[in-house]
């Protein structure tokens, strides 16, 4: 899906450092030479078209919640069913099929390490398959947004 030139500018500029002030969209509007209403309408449109997920905080892992990457080896014929069970957990926030014997990869964020293990135990019980927990030890480079 194509973005207009103005949309590209908006998206490239505001993936970080969004203003923490009472009228943030008015600041954006000033900087971009547009009206506040135009900015709000453009964001609504980007959201409705599925190009942005949200405007908000990306939280560092293991500061507020206990989180881990998790992998599963799922027989091909069960992949959709198992992926559906995994995605249905509110604690799961990314869930992808990848090209490997370990073919289902997802991130779980729970209120504590114990709760994280309970989520995995529940997934194992519901699917009859093992989960492989791969918790973070160290982050060297973090997601600071994309250039579109």
């Amino acid at each position: 899906m194509e973005l207009s030139t103005t949309e590209k500018r908006l998206v490239n500029r505001w993936q970080k450092g969004f203003p923490l002030e009472p009228r943030p969209f008015a600041s954006l509007a000033d900087e971009m030479g547009m009206s506040e209403d135009d900015i709000l309408a453009m964001l609504e449109s980007l959201k409705a078209r599925g190009l942005i997920t949200r405007l908000g905080a990306v939280v560092r892992p293991n500061t507020v919640a206990a989180s881990s990457l998790v992998a599963m080896q799922v027989p091909d014929h069960r992949l959709e069913e198992v992926a559906g069970i995994v995605s249905a957990c509110p604690e799961v926030n990314h869930n992808y099929e990848r090209e490997d014997k370990l073919n289902l990869w997802f991130v779980v964020a729970a209120s504590s390490a114990g709760e994280l293990d309970r989520v995995l135990a529940r997934i194992e019980a519901m699917t009859g398959l093992d989960t492989c927990k791969l918790p973070l030890k160290k982050a060297y480079h973090i997601d600071l947004g994309f250039s579109i």
Binding site: L10, V11, W14, Q15, K16, G17, F18, L20, L51, I52, T53, R54, L55, G56, A57, V58, V59, R60, T63, V64, I142, D143, L144, G145, F146, I148
Partner: peptide
């Protein structure tokens, strides 16, 4: 704790 605040694509 918040590593970035802005649009998530």
């Amino acid at each position: 704790v918040i590593r970035r605040f802005g649009l998530v694509l």
